[in-house]
Write a protein that binds this DNA or RNA. Structure first.
Length: 432
RNA sequence: UUGACCGUAGCUCAGUUGGUUAGAGCGCCGGGUUGUGGUCCCGGAGGUCGGGGGUUCAAAUCCCCUCGGUCAACCCA
């Protein structure tokens, strides 16, 4: 950092090309996958009345201590969205679309946290939600969508883990049982573990502290608290995934961070990611959330994937590279540059990716730039060409030595655009 | 919020126990005779050593604060 004193706020960053193109490509791939399954895009505001998020649970860390919130000039208390399910559920309550309402979304979210690899204060997610059905097949469809997308990206080292948190009453009973169990062994827990116990015993289950893990190992399993209906639902979900050949590991200690989850909970974890942030996404069923937001009793299931972490996983597995940004044509003009402007515009109108230099640089310098642009062809305009109403066309992929004029041909200026369109089309046909 | 490590040109980094005009590679710009790229050679631009304060005759090198990064706990995508 030299004399630059202004910088992006902590935990945020600028994404420049070609990384930005890669992010866009990932979003497009997700859109394609989602719409294939009948999900329509929903674009909701980046901020909401703070109440929207408070309703999802005050004990949730995301809500209680990680929200960016503020009062606007009209004294409205607002918050930048820390997650999207609540926003989408609010949209559902507001518009009451016919069910099943199937939506996908994409965009930044904000959480006030200490940043580290794969964790930012502004981060991007893609996700999907299905409102209005408690059919276990809905869970299967949603999970399959998330899974298929990871596979489509080329990720092979992603695992799906699933669990069921039971119905509301099951969850309450389990919570009480955990409180009793852990309470009796509080002295064996870590100091922080005891704090967690007081706040939410469920959280202790995925503690990473060794002292806590030893105690957790003997904790009562949630299975014993499932209602018959919840147990049957989970069995149906697992059978459905099995039928689709989607490998799902039951993980009895999986409890998600948002408190609104009921029954199905799942996560996608990457084994290619080292470090603590190995979850690329997660989701589950949240029957009851819509009612909490003031709507009718409505079932729902969905998921979100962290775009930044997905991209990190792609890097680790060496898949889903940035799309190439090579130019088709580079216009070299040593007659002042006005001709390059005309030609480049013509080429672009014809759909070719055309680049040119500015500032009246030497031919050698422009050729160097042409090379670095990755252009397939260079169109040269010098005094001779200009006088003859012609241009020189140079094959930049030739193996001839630099400096020579082999692989170069003269063409009438008038027909050069059509000529290039034809040549590029012919090549594209040969090598897709 | 807690702890550990780190912060030198656009990028990756060197900078001996504090001592004259802070270096390299890559990148960028220009040149190697008349208008031509990818190799090679030469040259140039670019840094108030993250910022502020302190110790000292003297600090990129020591101390404090601050901002930022990385890693871990917490939590989560």
């Amino acid at each position: 950092m030299s004399s630059v004193s202004l910088q992006a706020p902590r935990g945020t960053r600028d994404i420049l090309a070609p990384d930005s193109a890669r992010l866009r490509a990932l979003t497009q791939a997700f859109a394609a996958e989602s719409e294939l399954a009948g999900y329509g895009q929903v674009v909701s505001p980046m901020f909401e009345q703070i109440e929207v998020f408070r309703r999802v649970g005050e004990e949730t860390d995301i809500v209680s201590k990680e929200m960016y919130h503020f009062r606007d000039p009209g004294d409205r208390h607002l918050a930048l969205r820390p997650e999207l399910t609540a926003s989408v559920a609010r949209a559902f309550v507001q518009h009451r679309p016919p069910v099943p309402w199937k939506v996908w979304y994409e965009g930044p979210q904000f959480r006030y946290e200490k940043p580290q690899a794969g964790r930012f204060r502004q981060f991007n997610q893609v996700g999907a939600e299905l409102f209005g059905s408690d059919d276990p097949q809905a869970d299967v469809e949603v999970i399959a969508l998330a899974w298929r997308f990871c596979v489509a990206l080329g990720l092979r080292r992603v695992r799906l883990v699933v669990n069921s948190l039971g119905d509301r009453a099951d969850r309450e009973a389990y919570l009480a049982a955990l409180a009793g169990y852990f309470g009796g062994r509080a002295d064996e827990l870590s100091a922080q573990g005891r704090v967690t116990l007081a706040r939410n015993p469920l959280r202790l289950l995925d503690s990473k502290r060794p002292e806590d893990r030893a105690v957790v190992a003997g904790a009562p399993p949630i299975d014993e608290f499932w209602s018959p209906a919840a147990a049957a639902h989970f069995a149906a979900v697992r059978a459905g995934l099995d039928a689709l050949d989607i490998p799902a590991d039951r993980q009895r200690l999986l409890v998600r961070g948002l408190d609104y989850y009921r029954r199905t909970a799942f996560e996608l974890v990457s084994d290619a990611l080292d470090g603590a942030q190995d979850a690329v996404g997660g989701g589950g069923r949240y029957d009851g959330l819509v009612a909490d937001l003031g709507g009718p009793e409505t079932a729902g299931v969905g998921f979100a994937l962290g775009v930044d972490r997905l991209l990190l996983a792609c890097d680790a597995e060496d898949v889903f590279a940035a799309p190439p940004a090579a130019a088709d044509v580079y216009v070299v003009d040593v007659t002042g540059g006005a001709e390059a402007t005309l030609l480049a515009e013509e080429l672009r109108r014809a759909g070719l990716r055309a680049e040119r230099a500015f500032g009246g640089r030497s031919m050698k310098a422009q050729m160097k730039s042409a090379d670095r642009s990755g252009a397939r062809w260079a169109v040269l305009v010098g005094p001779d060409e200009l006088a003859d109403g012609a241009v020189s066309l140079r094959d930049m992929r030739g193996t001839q030595a630099a400096g020579g004029t082999a692989g170069q041909s003269r063409h009438p200026r008038a027909g050069i655009v059509a000529e290039l369109v034809a040549r590029l089309a012919a090549e594209k046909g040969k090598t897709p």
